[in-house]
Amino acid sequence: MAALVAAGWWPAMAGAAEWNRLAFEAKTFEDVLKALGGVDAKASGDVVLVAPEIAENGAVVPLQISSRSPATDMLAVLVEKNPNVLAAVFEVPEGTVADFQTRVKMAQTSNVFVLARSGGRYLYAVKEIKVTLGGCGG
């Protein structure tokens, strides 16, 4: 069953959009952007990443991601130096605030991007987070 899921043959659970394998297996910001339907992205002060400067434990790095751009309908988090860059994609329905908190793993010191889609445009913010103890080791 797991192999079938891994191979993409097993149908996604009823009601859930299909998991975006292409985006989650992408290795660069540009490839993730493309897989999420974007062509180019612009740095924007409307997109905000709140995160520690230094993460002592790369296994648990708390992040707050948000967008003040009013038409934001998607927010994503990318960790540039993780083996798979994309960590999460949040679809933001009408009525939901484009402001999320979650925790990510970081293998090493890396740029972390927040990518927002607003009115069909892709906007981002980036910040380097230093990691003293990586979170993806064996």
């Binding site: 960790v79 798979n84 994309l86 960590a87 999460a88 679809e91 939901t96 925790r103 990510v104 793993k105």
Partner: peptide, 15 residues
Amino acid sequence: VLSAQWGTSISANPF
């Protein structure tokens, strides 16, 4: 009210 997709970079016991 929220639909999310996650990859392997989300921490164990996700918040």
